[in-house]
Nucleic acid binder design. Structure first.
Ligand code: FES
Ligand code: FES
Lengths: 152, 152
DNA sequence: CTTATATAGTACTAAATTAGTCCCATAAGG
DNA sequence: CCTTATGGGACTAATTTAGTACTATATAAG
């Protein structure tokens, strides 16, 4: 299904929640209740997010998590990359490791290009966009103008 | 990793091979040898592709598989949809089934939009593009022009 | 009509990945 | 201190995916 893991789904959900109602910091418990995601899982996801500094953590009583940057400056792509460990549709398109059957393969660069397109799509949508209920993405048009200028 | 299944990878690989050297029909055995993918697996993939009429099958001696349409008219997106059973990054974004935690969820439409972007990216790249070794995707530029015109 | 070749369908097993939970360590406020 | 909260890691269960095998069906050639 070309699916993201549930962990990633949760991650975006949690962060979007934080972006939507910005009451400063949230404890894992509070987020679990608000989103109906099981607490241990919420905890796990936030820990992962905090390692890559997508959220900041405050320990101790009155502690919790808060977004590390403003929602507009955090992209869905970053969250995906953090929780999935990269964005690569196929082995061949990973930046490291070469595919074992490269010598017999004609597809070569195609996948790399497709990946770039997907990364681009994910990298253009911010948490602020996700939190906006009637979000209509004109991101594609923005790109358009940009590229068109380059063209001429 | 936001990965496609290996089956999908194989599918694209096999069909790209058929697109590149169009010697009519290929038997599963021939394709397995050419691509170094294990025969039973090749067989499985081709069967799946044939059900959705992405390849045509000819039974009996001198039989095999061939592309159902010209390479330029088959998109990578179609192959992915066939072998992954759809293109949906999250539960919420599937056309059917509603996500169970929709009532508590703020992300709402965001995923649908992201999916549309990904689908768009996959649907714009054809087998002919994949088979082209030095494929430089101007697909985005093509879109650009298109959209720009609409803009005015 | 018989035989060899090749796909169709399906069922099954094994492997890998992912999800989810738990425990203990650490930090900080009251 | 003692309570609250995160940090890290390890572990188990569940799900998904990969791969294989077997039987049935179609067809071309002799
Ligand atoms: S299949 Fe990996 S390089 Fe093409
Ligand atoms: S998490 Fe499913 S609708 Fe938002």
């Amino acid at each position: 299904m070309l699916r993201l893991s549930k962990l990633t789904d949760y991650g975006v959900l949690l962060m979007t929640h934080m972006a939507a109602s910005d009451s400063g910091t949230y404890s894992a418990v509070a987020l679990a209740e608000a989103t109906r995601v099981p607490l241990p899982t919420v905890s796990k996801v936030l820990k992962l997010l905090s390692r890559q500094r997508l959220v900041e953590s405050i320990r101790g009583p009155r502690g919790g998590y808060r977004l590390a940057r403003s929602p507009a400056r955090i992209t869905v792509g970053e969250i995906v990359r953090c929780l999935e460990g990269g964005i690569a549709l196929t082995e061949c398109s990973r930046d490291d490791a070469e595919c074992e059957q490269a010598p017999f393969c004609v597809s070569g660069n195609g996948w790399k290009r497709i990946n770039a397109a997907v990364r681009d799509a994910l990298g253009t949508i911010s948490l602020a966009d996700m939190a906006e209920p009637d979000f209509m993405p004109f991101f594609r048009l923005q790109r358009t103008i940009q590229v068109t200028e380059e063209l001429s």
